[in-house]
């Protein structure tokens, strides 16, 4: 496709879409959102890019092979279940750490969030593997 309108619009749309996908991922713990929707949104951004330009350009923009992204995501999700074992809990039990941010504030880092990051990457990777392989057919 060589629509100049779509191309220009995509260039403006792409950063907000990625930002929104990360936003969805981050708010997922307490509010609607999460790794799956975030991953879909991020995947949609790259799919849009591959439609407006071509698959090769989208691959170049992504830098990593989508299958590698999916594998890393699976590994992260798997590893997020392990910290619970060190405190004698069952696999995948939620564990939280307080990370000091200075001036008395803390960031609560929990394994459910790490799991969600893994889901995000898996969804992004699998979606783009399929979209790219369909797009390269033509």
């Amino acid at each position: 496709m060589t629509s100049i309108i779509l191309r220009t619009a995509t260039l403006y749309m792409f950063p907000p879409l990625i930002l929104f996908s990360v936003y969805l991922l981050l708010r997922g713990h307490h509010y609607p959102g999460g790794g799956f929707v975030g991953g879909l949104m991020g995947g949609a951004a790259f799919a849009l890019y591959s439609l407006a330009f071509n698959v090769a350009a989208a691959r170049k923009l992504l830098r990593f092979d989508p299958r590698d992204i999916a594998a890393v995501g699976l590994a992260i999700s798997l590893l997020s279940g392990l910290p619970a074992l060190f405190s004698g809990e069952v696999f995948l039990t939620g564990t939280w750490w307080k990370i000091p941010l200075g001036n008395g504030n803390y960031f609560d880092l929990g394994t459910p969030f790490i799991f969600d990051i893994g889901v995000y990457l898996v969804v992004l990777g699998v979606l783009l593997t399929l979209v790219f392989s369909l797009g390269e057919e033509e």
Partner: peptide
Amino acid sequence: MTLLPVLPIIVPLAGAVLCMLTRK
């Protein structure tokens, strides 16, 4: 042991991840 019953799921998954990462 708290890990044993879930190992039949974790082990193949870990193997699959490693295989995907060593695609080359």
